[in-house]
Design a protein around this nucleic acid. Structure first.
Lengths: 268, 268
DNA sequence: GCAGCTGTTTCACCACGTGGAACGCTGGAT
DNA sequence: ATCCAGCGTTCCACGTGGTGAAACAGCTGC
């Protein structure tokens, strides 16, 4: 366990205090933080130098700078999801031992945004740089779980896009009846499964990864923030066994992620 | 000159680096900041404890947390203006010795958001808690400068609101011809002046403050972010003297504030 | 003129931040 | 299989830099 840096912690504490009360006197910050005033003066002076706080001319009170709001921007909505998912997937992996991925839409495919493959004792199948890996929409367990639960309009858009594609692995986009059947089966079942012919990745059958998996969406008031799965070597377990062993924990994990996202949104 | 806290500075430096590259390996941060890795580990560990950064399960890279974006929000647009104005008003006051205020719209009146009265050698007229002070729309120099330069639609809204008011000091709202005349004079002149009868504050003639002032808007592509003024005891100088002495510096100050605001917006 | 409150400076102490060195792990090259 | 390079992490002895009580200064209200 590495130690933390106290002076840094205190500086951040002051920032957070100022965030709660955007304009405060030294006295107020002192009361709030219980940090002695001389120390506070040095901290505030440092924050001012870094232009994260400034002083009001009118009365010398300290105010958080607009610059601070700029920090932590320029990230897409899925970064938020990944961050919320990470600790939950970690815990899930601790518990059931098999790893999970978080996937999100990325145009004509899904992509991996987070994974607990590193945490699993069975990390055999971990080839690095997994983040950003493309995954097929219509054949993968995650893609099917996503489309089965996302709003009608979103599904139509994805299928329309894939229909324009001439890649053979997107053939299902041109067979709407079959696709509808698959998606309603998925919805009945409660989780997504791969196509029999599917071997992982963005394409169809080439280089099968030897994995099996089940997938559930991160469903929040009719909106899907992403999909998570649990994967294992297809030879190690049957789907039925895994469903019996893991599905409840798995579904709880999904709802925990959604809950975390909601909590964030509420505070903001 | 109080000293700054190095460990805190470094922590903030790491945050800023991470902001520039939202997901980075230790190595990358090390290259970027030139801070030795053991120190970085402790800094990052501290930031993690404060939940300002988290680690990606997939590869252990560090990412800025969404929490950081939440810091520095919940402030209205005028806080930004006040912050941009403060250093400029400070410099202006250093130069011309007379103090200034920044005022912004607040419903049926303007209000003070920043002032350099504390900085002026002639601080005689400083009564504390000036921030938040209400100021009359139609009789004050600042109100007139604002209305003369703001978009048509905004002016109409303000006047309509004031017309509903039954306070005597808003009488001009019911004499559109006279008001138009005043505002076009203001625009011709290039700066706003008080009504002869006006003595400061939200009301009409009561308790005159004995001040005179000139006001210019913070004009940015047709939009007005607020108004600044220069004030002095009416007995000390004539308006003509002050215009001759200060107007150019004053106008430069206004455009510097606008420039600072633009720069912020561009980066964001 | 005095008392109380807030912001600021001083200064001596010693905890705490620091970074070189060494270790462990992984992946790639041979 | 073996070596090597690169990265993350841990260790630890050094001495600087953070710390806060105490004293000071400026202002307000009584």
């Amino acid at each position: 366990m590495t130690k933390t840096i106290r002076s840094l912690e205190r500086g951040l504490q002051v920032l957070k205090t100022l965030n709660a009360t955007p304009i405060s006197s030294l006295q107020e910050i002192h009361h709030q933080t219980r940090i002695p005033k001389p120390t506070l003066l040095r901290i505030l002076h440092t924050l001012e130098q870094s232009s994260l706080v400034s002083r009001r001319l009118a009365d010398g009170r300290y105010r958080i700078s607009w610059n601070l709001a700029r920090l932590g921007r320029k990230r897409d909505r899925y970064d938020r999801v990944a961050e919320a998912a990470a600790p939950v997937l970690d815990r899930l992996c601790q518990k059931v031992s098999w790893p999970s991925d978080l996937m999100v839409p990325a145009g004509d495919h899904l992509e991996v945004r987070e994974t607990s493959r590193t945490q699993s004792p069975f990390m055999i199948y971990y080839n690095r740089d997994r983040v950003g890996m493309p995954v097929n929409w219509l054949l993968s367990a995650v893609g099917r779980a996503y489309l089965a639960y996302c709003p009608e309009s979103e599904r139509r858009k994805v299928v329309a896009l894939l229909r324009k594609s001439d890649r053979p692995e997107n053939w299902l986009a041109r067979e709407p009846a079959r696709l509808d059947e698959i998606l309603s089966e998925t919805k009945m079942r409660g989780y997504g499964l791969r196509d029999q012919t599917f071997g992982g990745g963005p394409y169809g059958m080439q280089s099968p990864d030897g994995l099996a998996g089940i997938a559930v969406p991160l469903l929040d008031r009719g909106r899907v923030h992403g999909v998570i799965n649990i994967i294992w070597p297809r030879s190690a377990r049957t789907i039925e066994d895994m469903v019996k062993q893991c599905l409840p924990d798995f579904q709880v994990a999904a709802s925990e992620i959604v809950k975390a996202l909601r909590r964030q949104a509420d505070i903001a």
